[in-house]
Simulated assay, not measured.
Amino acid sequence: MTHEKLAAQLAPNLALLAALGEMANITRAAELLAVPQPTLSRRLAALGETLGAPLTAPHGRGIRLTRAGELLADAASDAVARLESGVRRVLEEVEPSSGHVVLGFLHLLGRSLVPSLLRDYRATHPGTRFTLVQGSRQNMLDRLRDGELDLALLAPTPADPAFESCVLSEQEILLSVPSAHPLASRDEVTIAELADEEFVLLEPGYGLRQITDALCAQAGFEPKIAFEGQESDTVRGLVAAGLGVALLPHFEPGFPAGVVEVPITPRASRSIGLVWRAAEPLPPAVAAFRAHTTRR
Protein backbone atom coordinates (compact mmCIF):
# COMPACT_ATOMS: atom_id res chain seq x y z
CA MET A 1 0.00 0.00 0.00
CA THR A 2 1.36 3.43 -0.92
CA HIS A 3 2.01 6.04 1.75
CA GLU A 4 -0.73 8.21 0.19
CA LYS A 5 -3.32 5.45 0.71
CA LEU A 6 -2.06 4.79 4.23
CA ALA A 7 -2.32 8.48 5.06
CA ALA A 8 -5.89 8.56 3.73
CA GLN A 9 -6.82 5.64 6.01
CA LEU A 10 -5.17 7.29 9.01
CA ALA A 11 -6.75 10.72 8.45
CA PRO A 12 -10.05 9.97 10.28
CA ASN A 13 -8.02 9.04 13.37
CA LEU A 14 -5.89 12.18 13.62
CA ALA A 15 -7.68 13.41 16.74
CA LEU A 16 -7.21 10.00 18.38
CA LEU A 17 -3.48 9.92 17.65
CA ALA A 18 -2.99 13.53 18.75
CA ALA A 19 -4.86 12.89 22.02
CA LEU A 20 -2.83 9.78 22.72
CA GLY A 21 0.39 11.68 22.07
CA GLU A 22 -0.71 14.46 24.42
CA MET A 23 -2.01 12.27 27.25
CA ALA A 24 0.27 9.18 26.84
CA ASN A 25 -2.56 7.26 28.49
CA ILE A 26 -5.43 5.40 26.79
CA THR A 27 -7.93 6.06 29.60
CA ARG A 28 -7.29 9.81 29.68
CA ALA A 29 -7.21 10.01 25.87
CA ALA A 30 -10.59 8.23 25.75
CA GLU A 31 -12.00 10.69 28.30
CA LEU A 32 -10.66 13.63 26.29
CA LEU A 33 -12.32 12.32 23.12
CA ALA A 34 -15.48 11.21 24.96
CA VAL A 35 -15.31 7.67 23.54
CA PRO A 36 -15.27 4.34 25.44
CA GLN A 37 -11.79 3.04 26.19
CA PRO A 38 -12.42 -0.37 24.53
CA THR A 39 -13.43 1.44 21.33
CA LEU A 40 -10.25 3.48 21.36
CA SER A 41 -8.14 0.37 22.03
CA ARG A 42 -9.74 -1.47 19.10
CA ARG A 43 -9.13 1.48 16.78
CA LEU A 44 -5.47 1.63 17.83
CA ALA A 45 -5.06 -2.09 17.24
CA ALA A 46 -6.68 -1.77 13.79
CA LEU A 47 -4.36 1.14 12.91
CA GLY A 48 -1.38 -0.97 13.94
CA GLU A 49 -2.50 -3.80 11.73
CA THR A 50 -2.97 -1.41 8.81
CA LEU A 51 0.53 -0.04 9.27
CA GLY A 52 2.12 -3.41 9.99
CA ALA A 53 3.58 -2.15 13.27
CA PRO A 54 1.99 -1.79 16.73
CA LEU A 55 1.44 1.77 17.96
CA THR A 56 1.44 0.89 21.66
CA ALA A 57 3.20 -1.58 23.93
CA PRO A 58 2.49 -2.71 27.52
CA HIS A 59 4.21 -0.61 30.17
CA GLY A 60 3.59 -1.57 33.79
CA ARG A 61 -0.17 -1.40 34.31
CA GLY A 62 -0.60 0.90 31.34
CA ILE A 63 0.81 1.34 27.87
CA ARG A 64 3.45 3.39 26.16
CA LEU A 65 3.74 4.58 22.59
CA THR A 66 6.10 2.64 20.38
CA ARG A 67 8.50 4.53 18.13
CA ALA A 68 5.95 4.21 15.31
CA GLY A 69 3.24 5.52 17.64
CA GLU A 70 5.35 8.51 18.69
CA LEU A 71 6.08 9.45 15.09
CA LEU A 72 2.41 9.25 14.13
CA ALA A 73 1.26 11.11 17.26
CA ASP A 74 3.68 13.98 16.55
CA ALA A 75 2.52 14.21 12.94
CA ALA A 76 -1.13 14.04 14.00
CA SER A 77 -0.66 16.85 16.54
CA ASP A 78 0.83 19.09 13.84
CA ALA A 79 -1.97 18.21 11.42
CA VAL A 80 -4.72 18.85 13.99
CA ALA A 81 -3.19 22.21 14.91
CA ARG A 82 -3.12 23.24 11.24
CA LEU A 83 -6.69 22.06 10.77
CA GLU A 84 -7.85 24.02 13.83
CA SER A 85 -6.11 27.10 12.44
CA GLY A 86 -7.81 26.61 9.10
CA VAL A 87 -11.23 26.19 10.71
CA ARG A 88 -10.65 29.34 12.71
CA ARG A 89 -9.77 31.31 9.57
CA VAL A 90 -12.87 30.01 7.79
CA LEU A 91 -15.15 30.98 10.67
CA GLU A 92 -13.61 34.44 10.86
CA GLU A 93 -13.96 34.88 7.11
CA VAL A 94 -17.67 34.32 7.62
CA GLU A 95 -17.82 36.69 10.61
CA PRO A 96 -14.51 38.58 11.02
CA SER A 97 -15.90 41.08 13.51
CA SER A 98 -16.34 38.34 16.10
CA GLY A 99 -12.80 36.97 15.80
CA HIS A 100 -10.33 36.08 18.51
CA VAL A 101 -6.79 37.40 19.03
CA VAL A 102 -4.28 35.84 21.43
CA LEU A 103 -1.85 38.64 22.32
CA GLY A 104 1.31 38.17 24.35
CA PHE A 105 3.25 41.02 25.92
CA LEU A 106 5.88 41.91 28.49
CA HIS A 107 4.63 42.71 31.99
CA LEU A 108 5.78 46.33 31.78
CA LEU A 109 3.77 46.96 28.62
CA GLY A 110 0.54 46.08 30.39
CA ARG A 111 0.67 49.34 32.34
CA SER A 112 -0.27 51.71 29.49
CA LEU A 113 0.61 50.51 25.98
CA VAL A 114 -1.60 47.42 25.83
CA PRO A 115 -4.68 49.09 27.36
CA SER A 116 -4.41 52.03 24.97
CA LEU A 117 -4.02 49.78 21.91
CA LEU A 118 -6.99 47.64 22.89
CA ARG A 119 -9.15 50.65 23.73
CA ASP A 120 -8.50 52.22 20.32
CA TYR A 121 -9.08 48.97 18.45
CA ARG A 122 -12.24 47.97 20.28
CA ALA A 123 -13.74 51.38 19.47
CA THR A 124 -14.11 50.22 15.86
CA HIS A 125 -14.09 46.42 16.37
CA PRO A 126 -16.23 45.85 19.49
CA GLY A 127 -16.90 42.19 18.71
CA THR A 128 -13.28 41.05 18.69
CA ARG A 129 -12.31 38.92 21.70
CA PHE A 130 -8.79 39.06 23.15
CA THR A 131 -6.87 36.59 25.26
CA LEU A 132 -3.97 38.37 26.96
CA VAL A 133 -0.82 36.50 28.00
CA GLN A 134 2.09 38.03 29.95
CA GLY A 135 5.60 36.74 30.44
CA SER A 136 9.29 37.23 29.79
CA ARG A 137 10.57 38.05 26.33
CA GLN A 138 11.95 34.54 25.83
CA ASN A 139 8.74 32.94 27.08
CA MET A 140 6.70 35.07 24.67
CA LEU A 141 8.97 34.13 21.75
CA ASP A 142 8.75 30.43 22.62
CA ARG A 143 4.96 30.55 22.83
CA LEU A 144 4.70 32.56 19.63
CA ARG A 145 6.93 30.02 17.84
CA ASP A 146 4.78 27.14 19.14
CA GLY A 147 1.58 28.77 17.88
CA GLU A 148 0.18 29.51 21.36
CA LEU A 149 0.18 33.25 20.57
CA ASP A 150 -0.98 35.08 17.46
CA LEU A 151 1.02 38.24 18.11
CA ALA A 152 3.39 39.55 20.76
CA LEU A 153 4.46 42.99 21.93
CA LEU A 154 8.15 42.69 22.75
CA ALA A 155 11.20 44.77 23.46
CA PRO A 156 13.54 44.51 21.72
CA THR A 157 12.17 42.83 18.59
CA PRO A 158 13.92 39.56 17.64
CA ALA A 159 16.55 39.25 14.91
CA ASP A 160 15.27 35.82 13.92
CA PRO A 161 14.07 34.82 10.41
CA ALA A 162 11.28 32.80 12.03
CA PHE A 163 9.59 36.07 12.97
CA GLU A 164 8.55 39.32 11.37
CA SER A 165 8.06 42.52 13.35
CA CYS A 166 7.24 46.20 13.19
CA VAL A 167 8.76 48.70 15.61
CA LEU A 168 6.07 50.82 17.27
CA SER A 169 8.12 53.09 19.53
CA GLU A 170 11.42 53.63 21.34
CA GLN A 171 11.78 53.76 25.13
CA GLU A 172 14.73 55.48 26.77
CA ILE A 173 16.45 53.45 29.48
CA LEU A 174 16.99 55.36 32.74
CA LEU A 175 18.74 54.67 36.02
CA SER A 176 16.27 54.12 38.86
CA VAL A 177 17.70 54.85 42.33
CA PRO A 178 16.18 55.31 45.79
CA SER A 179 15.19 58.93 46.41
CA ALA A 180 17.85 59.24 49.13
CA HIS A 181 20.64 57.78 46.97
CA PRO A 182 23.68 60.05 46.31
CA LEU A 183 23.10 59.72 42.53
CA ALA A 184 19.48 60.88 42.79
CA SER A 185 20.45 64.55 42.44
CA ARG A 186 22.62 64.04 39.34
CA ASP A 187 21.62 65.29 35.89
CA GLU A 188 23.09 62.16 34.34
CA VAL A 189 25.20 59.15 35.30
CA THR A 190 27.66 57.03 33.34
CA ILE A 191 27.24 53.26 33.44
CA ALA A 192 30.86 52.93 34.60
CA GLU A 193 29.95 54.80 37.81
CA LEU A 194 27.62 51.94 38.73
CA ALA A 195 30.33 49.30 38.96
CA ASP A 196 30.20 49.22 42.78
CA GLU A 197 26.42 49.47 43.05
CA GLU A 198 24.14 46.55 43.88
CA PHE A 199 21.55 45.92 41.18
CA VAL A 200 17.97 44.78 41.30
CA LEU A 201 17.47 42.90 38.03
CA LEU A 202 14.83 41.07 36.11
CA GLU A 203 15.59 37.38 35.67
CA PRO A 204 17.52 36.07 32.63
CA GLY A 205 15.24 35.78 29.60
CA TYR A 206 13.81 39.28 30.03
CA GLY A 207 14.77 41.91 27.46
CA LEU A 208 15.66 44.50 30.11
CA ARG A 209 18.00 42.02 31.75
CA GLN A 210 19.80 41.52 28.44
CA ILE A 211 20.09 45.29 27.98
CA THR A 212 21.44 45.78 31.52
CA ASP A 213 23.99 43.00 31.16
CA ALA A 214 25.11 44.38 27.78
CA LEU A 215 25.49 47.98 29.05
CA CYS A 216 27.48 46.87 32.07
CA ALA A 217 29.69 44.63 29.92
CA GLN A 218 30.41 47.56 27.60
CA ALA A 219 31.44 49.56 30.67
CA GLY A 220 33.82 46.77 31.74
CA PHE A 221 32.03 45.11 34.66
CA GLU A 222 29.38 42.59 35.62
CA PRO A 223 26.51 43.94 37.73
CA LYS A 224 26.49 42.93 41.38
CA ILE A 225 23.13 41.23 41.82
CA ALA A 226 21.24 41.95 45.01
CA PHE A 227 17.85 40.68 43.88
CA GLU A 228 16.21 39.21 40.76
CA GLY A 229 12.52 39.46 39.96
CA GLN A 230 9.97 38.76 37.25
CA GLU A 231 8.13 42.10 37.10
CA SER A 232 9.44 45.63 36.72
CA ASP A 233 7.01 46.90 39.38
CA THR A 234 8.61 44.52 41.87
CA VAL A 235 12.05 45.72 40.80
CA ARG A 236 11.00 49.35 41.34
CA GLY A 237 9.56 48.48 44.74
CA LEU A 238 12.88 46.97 45.81
CA VAL A 239 14.72 50.04 44.52
CA ALA A 240 12.36 52.29 46.50
CA ALA A 241 13.15 50.22 49.61
CA GLY A 242 16.85 51.05 49.17
CA LEU A 243 17.85 47.53 48.15
CA GLY A 244 19.68 48.42 44.94
CA VAL A 245 19.55 50.32 41.65
CA ALA A 246 18.05 49.29 38.32
CA LEU A 247 18.05 50.23 34.64
CA LEU A 248 14.43 50.60 33.53
CA PRO A 249 12.28 52.55 31.08
CA HIS A 250 10.40 55.63 32.28
CA PHE A 251 7.61 54.78 34.69
CA GLU A 252 4.15 55.48 33.24
CA PRO A 253 1.92 57.15 34.14
CA GLY A 254 3.45 59.71 36.51
CA PHE A 255 6.46 59.04 38.71
CA PRO A 256 7.15 56.05 40.98
CA ALA A 257 7.02 56.73 44.72
CA GLY A 258 10.41 56.63 46.45
CA VAL A 259 12.34 56.28 43.16
CA VAL A 260 14.24 58.88 41.14
CA GLU A 261 14.92 58.33 37.45
CA VAL A 262 18.28 59.65 36.21
CA PRO A 263 19.38 59.76 32.54
CA ILE A 264 22.39 57.61 31.71
CA THR A 265 25.23 58.30 29.34
CA PRO A 266 25.79 57.13 26.74
CA ARG A 267 22.06 57.17 26.09
CA ALA A 268 20.34 53.80 25.72
CA SER A 269 16.90 52.80 24.55
CA ARG A 270 14.89 49.77 23.57
CA SER A 271 12.57 49.22 20.63
CA ILE A 272 9.02 48.09 21.32
CA GLY A 273 7.50 46.18 18.45
CA LEU A 274 4.71 43.88 17.38
CA VAL A 275 5.99 40.41 16.41
CA TRP A 276 4.38 37.55 14.49
CA ARG A 277 5.43 34.29 12.81
CA ALA A 278 6.97 34.82 9.38
CA ALA A 279 5.42 33.51 6.16
CA GLU A 280 2.25 32.30 7.84
CA PRO A 281 -1.27 33.50 6.97
CA LEU A 282 -3.06 35.19 9.84
CA PRO A 283 -6.73 34.74 10.73
CA PRO A 284 -8.72 37.80 9.62
CA ALA A 285 -9.22 39.21 13.12
CA VAL A 286 -5.50 38.89 13.88
CA ALA A 287 -4.54 40.46 10.56
CA ALA A 288 -6.97 43.33 11.20
CA PHE A 289 -5.50 44.02 14.64
CA ARG A 290 -1.97 43.87 13.25
CA ALA A 291 -2.89 46.30 10.49
CA HIS A 292 -4.50 48.67 12.99
CA THR A 293 -1.51 48.54 15.34
CA THR A 294 1.21 48.85 12.73
CA ARG A 295 -0.80 50.98 10.30
CA ARG A 296 0.14 48.49 7.58
Results as ranks from 00 to 15, higher is better:
residue 148 E to W: 08
residue 149 L to I: 03
residue 150 D to M: 07
residue 150 D to Q: 12
residue 151 L to A: 04
residue 151 L to M: 06
residue 151 L to Y: 05
residue 152 A to C: 09
residue 152 A to E: 00
residue 153 L to P: 03
residue 154 L to A: 07
residue 155 A to H: 03
residue 156 P to N: 09
residue 156 P to V: 12
residue 157 T to V: 15
residue 157 T to N: 05
residue 158 P to T: 04
residue 158 P to I: 03
residue 159 A to S: 15
residue 159 A to M: 13
residue 160 D to Y: 11
residue 161 P to I: 00
residue 164 E to H: 11
residue 165 S to N: 08
residue 165 S to E: 01
residue 167 V to W: 10
residue 168 L to M: 07
residue 168 L to Q: 07
residue 169 S to H: 11
residue 169 S to V: 10
residue 171 Q to K: 12
residue 173 I to L: 15
residue 174 L to D: 01
residue 174 L to K: 00
residue 176 S to P: 00
residue 176 S to L: 08
residue 176 S to G: 14
residue 177 V to N: 05
residue 177 V to A: 10
residue 178 P to S: 13
residue 178 P to T: 10
residue 179 S to E: 14
residue 180 A to Q: 13
residue 180 A to R: 11
residue 180 A to W: 12
residue 183 L to C: 07
residue 183 L to Y: 08
residue 184 A to K: 09
residue 184 A to F: 07
residue 185 S to C: 12
residue 186 R to F: 13
residue 186 R to C: 14
residue 187 D to L: 13
residue 187 D to P: 09
residue 187 D to T: 13
residue 187 D to A: 15
residue 188 E to W: 12
residue 188 E to L: 13
residue 190 T to N: 04
residue 190 T to P: 02
residue 191 I to Y: 04
residue 192 A to Y: 11
residue 193 E to K: 02
residue 194 L to K: 04
residue 194 L to V: 10
residue 195 A to S: 15
residue 198 E to V: 06
residue 199 F to S: 00
residue 199 F to N: 00
residue 200 V to R: 00
